[in-house]
Design a protein around this nucleic acid. Structure first.
Lengths: 245, 245
DNA sequence: ACGGTGAACCAAAACATAATTGGTTCGCAA
DNA sequence: TTGCGAACCAATTATGTTTTGGTTCACCGT
């Protein structure tokens, strides 16, 4: 009797998350499929998945499935209709306004459980072969932080911005702005954000989030300048917001 | 041959709209039902309905039906959805996060025309008696500032928050928080905001907007304390946000 | 020849039904 | 007792049918 333990299944699933090619929707196989694939009983599979979910790497929904990252808020239909015409740079500017405040609120309200999940997402080492994957885990952390601000209107506003990332010409933008070094920088900034949140330091969280977003925005500007087609004056960095205090 | 003309059907439908106890956005009979009820051909019914629709009394949607009044805009629909679960204090907190940044952007982007319009709104002397009117002009100024930030996602987000004024227990809140002195204070703060925007001073505009919102929030807290029913600890002022450097 | 009628057809939205999926319980057996 | 499998439950999606406004067209009466 070759017993497959929850630890084994856990390793199997985490491997799939890190190395395997996730579907576009970040959807994982069903519990029954995992059970069949690993030879473990469904109970064991559920134990493994539950532990991974508690860590914050996946989320599950009855009738829907199991997914990598963090859940999207279900504003879907209306949000898509509203945000049809948003320019990427506009969206980033809006995020620069809202997300630092969200991080500040989050610092005063996140539970230790939630902070632990943030650490798991911030410290993730994944194969960076695919832009989609990078975006998946990045957005998961940001989404989790937004949720922990515990302010529904704000979260809805953030979701409005978050939804636009998935659509349209963001894809090409991502491919150009990502690099080995910028990835390392992003991870360092994520860690700084979570550290501030864990410390309950609202001001530090706000500033860390600002730094992070400013870095990303400037990367976008530089990518646009390299591409050359759009934005004639995009070689200037986005700093007129730095008059903050 | 007793022909029923479009005019006849029109009168029939308008009568239904006026006398009948139809709420706003109530559903009307289908075109086929109208046709059967009036004896007119469907074409005639459609002519009549089209004229009524052009007047703005009804709206139609393929597959959905014919409805009284004007269709709900998607943003308003989302706002209504939020209002079912969001507390007024949550909304004010969200505004406290977003609006100062909007004011800062506005200070760098508003044209002189727009500033002139802001002055007109800020200097308006309105009667304290009528809460509705007070709220209307206050909302108008804030919306104008949001528009001048020239960022559609941000403007949408603000509209989402501002729409909540129209609904539910916001009414009672208004009546309790408004007074002769608070009205004067509000006007002074409005003027300070517009002055900073006119000067192009982003930091000053941000701070002026913060002050204004904090004042309003504390007024709400005090009103809640007076009402006594809700929020046991509402006698403390809302200041844990004041750590803002 | 003209205009209206009724029927048929199209597309969008709602409604109803079946299938899928995570969550839960229970009997059975090692 | 513990763990497994099966069945069942509830939420969600997928699919098909019906309803409804929008459109086209052959036909009839004047």
């Amino acid at each position: 009797m070759n017993k497959v333990t929850a630890i084994d299944v856990r390793r199997y699933v985490v491997d799939l998350l890190m190395n395997g090619s996730l579907a576009a929707n970040a959807r994982l196989p069903t519990e029954r499929e995992f059970s069949e694939a690993t030879g473990a009983s469904r109970r064991v599979v559920r134990q493994a998945l539950s532990s991974i979910e508690a860590e914050g790497l996946i989320w599950r929904r009855q009738g829907k499935g199991t997914f990598a990252g963090q859940p999207l808020e279900p504003v879907s239909a209306l949000a898509a209709e509203i945000n049809q015409t948003a320019e990427p740079i506009e969206v980033m500017e809006a995020r620069l306004c809202i997300e630092p405040e969200i991080a500040a609120l989050c610092a005063t309200r996140a539970t230790s459980d939630e902070v632990a999940r943030m650490w798991a997402l911030a410290r993730l080492h994944y194969d960076v072969e695919d832009d989609e994957v990078t975006e998946l885990w990045d957005s998961a952390l940001h989404r989790l932080i937004a949720r922990c601000a515990r302010n529904r209107p704000l979260q809805t506003a953030y979701t409005l911005l978050d939804d636009t990332r998935a659509s349209r010409d963001w894809q090409g933008m991502r491919a150009r702005t990502r690099s080995e070094s910028s990835l390392r920088e992003t991870m360092a900034q994520h860690i700084a954000i979570v550290r501030a949140i864990e410390a309950g330091d609202a001001s530090a969280a706000r500033e860390a989030m600002r730094d992070h977003l400013l870095t990303r925005i400037n990367a976008m500007f530089q990518a646009a300048a390299l591409a050359g087609t759009t934005a004639a004056d995009s070689d200037i960095t986005y700093d007129h917001e730095a008059s903050h205090v």
